[in-house]
Simulated assay, not measured.
Amino acid sequence: MEQVAFRQMKDGTREEYVFLEGLEEQFNRGLVDRLLDALRQLEHSLSGYRVTRLEHSLQSAARAEADGADEDMIVGALLHDLGDDLAPYNHSQLAASIIRPYVRGEVTWVVHHHGLFQTYYFAHHFGMDPNARDRYRDHPCYQACVDFCERYDQASFDPDYPTPPLEHFEPMLRRVFSRTPFDPAVIGEEHPLEP
């Protein structure tokens, strides 16, 4: 079989779905390569900063690594702005959706909410509330997100910070994304991702 015969999913046979599942498994093995390509594309993304979006991502991950963060958080820092090009107004939710099957729930929550939490640094310039993040003050991941934004995200626009190349993080990406998706032993406690 080279392709299925059905034109509507409800008409598909078991044989066709088994065939498609095999193709999907094969395609999914290339996920890390596609993530690396997407990260490389950040080199040509939003301008105006003193570093490219790729350099910002690498620097965020390097700061997390230097801070002693675990691989889940380092990968979260590396991919936290991956949605900038395709989802400029909800980039953090897009990035969180990508990492969610592979990292602990706290990291997913932090990446999902970092877009709101980072407004702490600039919202006042636009007449907005810089403390909008405080609606989550009682959430168990609140401080982790505050720390993520302070230590890794907002600080990573420094062209002089010693930042390793993308290849430095590739083995870590491959380890994290080789995990069984949604493994409860990895994800642990999931936290609701309300906006």
Rank of each mutant, 00 (worst) to 15 (best):
L23M: 12
L23N: 09
L82I: 15
R133D: 09
Q8G: 09
C141N: 10
E71C: 03
Y49G: 15
D129W: 04
Q93G: 12
S178L: 05
H139R: 10
T52E: 05
R179V: 09
P130I: 07
N90E: 13
Q118F: 04
Y17I: 11
A69E: 10
R137I: 13
E71K: 08
E190V: 10
R133A: 12
D37P: 00
R7C: 12
G83V: 02
S97L: 10
E16P: 04
L78Y: 04
R174M: 08
T119L: 10
S178C: 07
E21V: 06
D67S: 14
V51I: 13
Q154R: 13
P165C: 04
L193D: 03
L116A: 11
L46W: 12
Q8D: 13
F182W: 15
P88E: 11
A5C: 11
D153G: 03
D138K: 13
D129F: 04
F177C: 07
C149W: 00
A144T: 07
F157P: 00
L166S: 02
S57E: 00
A155G: 10
I187N: 04
E65H: 13
H125W: 12
S47D: 10
F169T: 00
P171E: 09
S178N: 12
Y120F: 15
R14C: 09
T180H: 09
P88V: 10
T52F: 05
T52D: 04
G12K: 01
C149T: 12
E16M: 07
A144G: 14
V146E: 11
A144R: 14
D72E: 11
L54S: 00
H44W: 12
P162Y: 05
F157N: 14
P130G: 07
L166Q: 05
A96R: 02
F182G: 01
V18M: 02
A61K: 01
C145Q: 03
R137A: 15
L39F: 08
D33M: 05
Y102W: 15
H80I: 04
M128V: 03
L20A: 07
E150L: 11
M128E: 12
D160T: 15
L23W: 08
Y142G: 02
P184A: 04
M73Q: 09
H56A: 10
H139N: 14
R179L: 10
D158T: 08
Q41G: 06
D85R: 14
Y17L: 15
D158I: 05
R7M: 08
H125A: 10
Y152S: 02
G115D: 06
D70W: 08
T52K: 06
D67R: 13
E25D: 10
I187G: 00
L46Q: 13
R14G: 09
A62Q: 15
Q59K: 05
